[in-house]
Nucleic acid binder design. Structure first.
Length: 353
DNA sequence: TAGCCGTGGTT
DNA sequence: TAACCAAGGCT
């Protein structure tokens, strides 16, 4: 390691010793590594997700399933419902697959980056993070925080995503052999609290003396990113069908949008286009209001259609289930449908059922 | 490789 | 308000 890199790593670790955030899944700086199960669970939950959003889910999961064996033994539907609201539901499917793979092979997580990388749901980032944080292995841990810190530190001009190769090489250069987990978490804390996307607090930064972007007076210019395409707007309908204080819910296909989650029946809207307007039965339907919901690649206006006859002619039993209205919270609806269900319940309140 | 996949907070 | 974006992975 060259002198500048050693300087950077030393300053950063000293800063972390004083300013590390206290988080439920984290051990204090310099202390023994935490339970790999908790490290892994937190890292998966934190993929593209803020610390604030994760905290309650982490507490819920670790209370309900204290070990990886407990999680491996859980029912699919239980875990999907517990994940409801956190988003990116493929993570929950992979979480279960990973827990079961680990349980099958003796109940312990592998302690090397290469072996971790083979588990479902662990990509380059997560495998490196778990290897470093849970097992003290030197690994090059690069998430969006690290990308930002490193791009500024070295004033890397190459726009993302292509510039990742150069950023990764630079991160490798400054990563020390010792305290690998602390170093990775220090970089992420720095990115989250000091080297922020907008309005970085360079005057508080332990690396400002080494930072090329700061010296040039334009740290916020980095990392350079390719422009993003505009999000299309889509229209869709969801259907609120109630009988005997129960509402008709379906389970979405295992893959794709909101895959594997319980949902209200809908008319087939997607990122590619509007829905057909057609529901699972013929109607008649009454307008029940609309909600707007933003997904990664499009914005959806979801209009709720209320079934307005007292008797449902027929619904195929294997296509869904009648779910008690007073236990709707337990259904684990993703946020889009939870919003729509609120509309449905409100409409019933207005008509006094 | 680039498109797909949620959600909620910030500006 | 609308755009941006956060401890990414999969195909």
């Amino acid at each position: 390691m060259d002198a500048r890199s050693e300087h950077v790593a030393g300053h950063l670790l000293a800063w972390y010793d004083r300013h590390a955030r206290t988080l439920p899944w984290r051990a204090p700086p310099g202390s023994p590594a935490p339970d790999p199960y908790r490290v892994w669970l937190s890292e998966v939950m934190l993929q593209q997700t803020t610390v604030a959003a994760v905290k309650d889910y982490f507490a819920k999961f670790t209370t309900r399933w204290p070990t990886v064996a407990d999680l491996a033994a859980a029912e699919d539907a239980e875990v999907m419902a517990a994940w409801a609201g956190l988003g990116y539901y493929a993570r929950a499917r992979n979480l279960l697959a990973c827990a079961r793979a680990v349980a099958e092979s003796g109940g312990s997580f592998p302690d090397s980056e290469d072996e971790l990388r083979k588990l479902p749901g662990l990509g380059a980032y997560t495998a490196a993070a778990v290897a470093a944080i849970a097992f003290g292995r030197r690994a090059v841990v690069v998430d969006a925080n690290v990308e930002r810190v490193v791009a500024r530190l070295f004033a890397i001009d190459a726009p993302l995503p292509g510039g990742r190769t150069e950023i990764r090489a630079a991160t490798d250069r400054i990563t020390p052999d010792a305290r690998a987990g602390d170093f990775a978490q220090a970089m992420m804390d720095l990115g989250a609290t000091v080297c922020t996307t907008r309005n970085p607090r360079c005057l508080l930064c332990p690396l400002s003396g080494d930072c090329t972007g700061y010296r040039a007076g334009e740290p916020e210019r980095f990392p350079v990113k390719a422009p993003k395409a505009a999000k299309p707007h889509r229209q869709g309908r969801a259907f609120w069908i109630v009988r005997n204080e129960k509402v008709w819910l379906v389970q979405r296909p295992g893959k794709g949008m909101l895959g594997g989650m319980r949902a209200l029946p809908d008319d087939g809207w997607s990122a590619r286009g509007d829905g057909s307007g057609e529901g699972p039965i013929a109607g008649p339907w009454t307008p029940g209001g609309a909600v707007q919901h933003g997904f990664t690649h499009f914005t959806l206006d979801l209009h709720l259609a209320l079934y307005s006859r007292s008797e449902v002619v027929s619904l195929p039993p294997d296509a869904g289930e009648w779910w008690p209205l007073d236990r709707l919270e337990e259904a684990g609806l993703p946020t889009l449908f939870a919003k729509a269900a609120r509309l449905g319940l409100a409409a019933m309140g207005e008509t006094d059922r």
